[in-house]
Amino acid sequence: MEMIRAEQVRYVYKTKYQKVEALRDVTCSFETGKIYSIVGESGSGKSTFLSLLAGLDLPTAGSLCIEGRDIRTINRDKYRMEQASVVYQAFHLFPLLTALENVAFPMTLKGVPVKKAREQAKQLIKKVGLEDKILKQYPQMMSGGEQQRVAIARAMASGGTILLADEPTGNLDTKNEVHIVKLLKDLAHRENYLVIVVTHNRKVAYETDMILCMQDGALIEVQENG
């Protein structure tokens, strides 16, 4: 089922000295139950495109539709809270919250009572393959792989079906990289998530169902993996 459709998406931002055209006429679509990767050189516009997909900004031109509705017409805060979650290369967990509190946070933000949110957070942490001992640990006490799993659990906590990942394995060793990629694939194939991964890593890209190649802000190739 088509979840996101980008049509001729352009994105221009201004720096102090110049205008930068970060995205040029990007057209593509994303379906639930699949995992996509966006690859390209640094500065090719991958992360910018991901942030537009996350609703953190609006395209300068073109249209970006979520379940058939233009992103300009929807409440983007609500969209991020209920539908789309982002996983970052640097994990970005709240440093002063424990793993359990980090995962419970999006739920409390939505108004779920703290106790209930923590119960659900426990289950999600288990689901991403972490043990109970991690629950009360602060991010700085965890390994990179553990932090990224907690971040994925937090993304799942919003209850949405769109998971956007910006270089999710960028700070991980090979062993953890494999675990995280497997986890993301499982989410797409078993839990019917739409997973979009921005990566430099060709190995990770080949694990996904579809590879989108970007260059200088344009989508130059879409490659389906067998």
């Binding site: 516009g45 991958k46 992360s47 991901l50 942030s51 900004d57 982002v86 290369q89 910006d166 960028g170």
Partner: peptide
């Protein structure tokens, strides 16, 4: 975007 995403 600047605070959370990797700078390209």
């Amino acid at each position: 975007m600047q605070a959370l995403f990797c700078t390209e």
